[in-house]
Design a protein around this nucleic acid. Structure first.
Length: 183
DNA sequence: GCTATGATCATA
DNA sequence: ATGATCATAGCA
């Protein structure tokens, strides 16, 4: 198992969202396979936090790729995102569900659940995923799986764009979506 | 400073 | 359907 290089992240957001499926998220002892992601584009995506430019909160989305963007929502939950695109260009991938591999006790089938179970909070906002406490690793032998696409969950703007990716048939995917198809 | 709002989840 | 619960943005 080795750390994903920065070059993996310095690509179009949708490619990173697809590519993250099957990779391993590691925080301390906790290891889990990423099984569901959503792409949030920098430009022309009204649903993205970065849509209205740089603010103290969205700063990291415009920063160098391969870093974590963690925010707090609904007064209760943290959401983990992975920054994509070259530095200066906005774009990030929301990690919506992971499959436990090691050192995990608790639910991981949803963005708020996986951050709680893996103890990810805003303390990790801006953390370097290639060299830090939170990392994304790649298996030497990645399992074979089928990628499916559907619409992003829980947003109003641009709700019909095919920007949600998941491993078909994986039981940790957070919910079945309509209009889903093979990618 | 004040306030509306939300990339969620569990419960009913 | 609703509530838990608070950081952020937008505006004054």
């Amino acid at each position: 198992m080795r750390v994903l290089p920065r070059s993996f992240y310095a690509r179009p957001t949708v490619e990173v969202a697809r590519g993250l499926l099957g990779k391993v998220l590691q925080h301390g002892d906790a290891h889990a396979r990423i099984v569901e992601t959503e792409a949030y584009l920098g430009t022309g995506d009204a649903a993205a936090h970065s849509a209205r430019g740089v603010t103290p909160r969205t700063r990291v989305i415009f920063g160098p790729p391969g870093h974590a963007y963690v925010y707090f929502i609904y007064g209760m939950h943290y959401c983990l995102n992975v920054v994509a695109e070259p530095e200066g260009v906005a774009g990030c991938v929301l990690v919506r569900a992971v499959e436990p591999l090691n050192g995990i006790e608790g639910a991981t089938d949803g963005p708020g659940k996986l951050t709680r179970t893996m103890r990810i909070t805003t303390r990790l906002n801006g953390a370097d995923l290639t060299n830090g406490p939170l990392r994304v690793l790649t298996l030497n032998h990645e399992p074979v799986f089928e990628t499916w696409v559907s619409c992003r969950v829980g947003i109003r703007e641009s709700a019909d764009l095919p920007l949600r990716f998941y491993i078909e048939g994986n039981r940790f995917v957070s919910r079945r979506a309509h209009a889903a198809r093979r990618d």
